[in-house]
Computed example of a mutant assay.
Amino acid sequence: MVHPVGLAGFLVAVLPLTATPGASLALLVQHVTDGGRRRALPVVLGTVTGLYIHAALAVAGLSALVMHSSVAFTVVRLIGAVYLIGLGVWTWRTATPAPRRRPRHRTDSVYAQALLANVLNPKAASIYLTLVPQFVAPDRPIGGQILTLATAHALLITLWLTAWTFLVLRATRVLQTPRFKRRAARATSAILIALGVRAAMA
């Protein structure tokens, strides 16, 4: 079990990273704008699932192997970059649907997008390889401590994305027009492409 002081310190340390706009927030804004609050849940669940996958990899030592191998890390980074750019292009294309056809997003599709956006994000992996070890006591079971920190991280991200959901819902009630939705989708696509390009050039 992580000491309460250490847990609080971890949350303070990870808060700026959580508040930094990224793929999860971009997907949340796009999907909530397009489909309402019901689209927020799969984005949150996909993001949280990704965190637990990173935590599990950190426990197993697989992430450490990737981070210590420049070739493996580069492969992961480029895969993530290609995915974000591809998702951004897809989002841009669906921002202007064909006449009489409205793009339909299945809940599992939204979940998969959020999950992959998190799992393929090297920044999320680095949190569990560089930040988490600072708050883990080596004389205690590592797995339980990392699970506790991952759960606290997941709750923090859930609160953050939930707050954004309400902000987006209030905005869309005022600007609930096809033009606003198209602009929001295109802004999201631009963010995703920019994140992908930055990841590829990092």
Rank of each mutant, 00 (worst) to 15 (best):
G35D: 06
T74E: 15
S63K: 04
I79R: 03
V71A: 04
A56W: 00
H68A: 15
I85C: 14
G80T: 06
F73E: 09
V75C: 08
I79S: 11
A40L: 08
Y83I: 00
A58I: 10
V82F: 01
G36L: 09
I85H: 01
L51W: 10
L84S: 13
A58Y: 00
A64Y: 14
Y52F: 15
L45M: 02
A72L: 15
T74L: 13
S70K: 07
Y83N: 03
H68Q: 13
G88T: 02
A64V: 10
P42A: 14
L45F: 06
R38G: 06
G86M: 07
G50V: 01
L57M: 15
G61N: 15
L84A: 13
L84V: 15
G88M: 06
G61E: 06
L62A: 15
G80N: 14
R37K: 05
R39I: 00
G50K: 11
S70N: 10
G50I: 05
G35E: 14
G61T: 11
I85F: 11
A64R: 03
V76P: 04
L41R: 13
I53H: 04
H54G: 11
V66R: 02
V44E: 01
G36K: 00
G80A: 10
A40M: 13
S69M: 08
A81F: 04
G46A: 07
V82S: 08
T47V: 14
L62P: 11
T74R: 13
A55E: 13
M67G: 10
L84P: 09
A55T: 06
A81L: 04
V44M: 15
F73S: 02
T47L: 12
Y52V: 09
L65Y: 09
G50T: 03
R37N: 02
R38I: 05
R37E: 09
A55R: 02
I79G: 14
V82Q: 05
S69P: 08
Y83W: 09
Y83S: 00
A72H: 01
A72S: 08
R37F: 12
V71D: 01
G61C: 07
V48D: 02
G88S: 10
L62C: 11
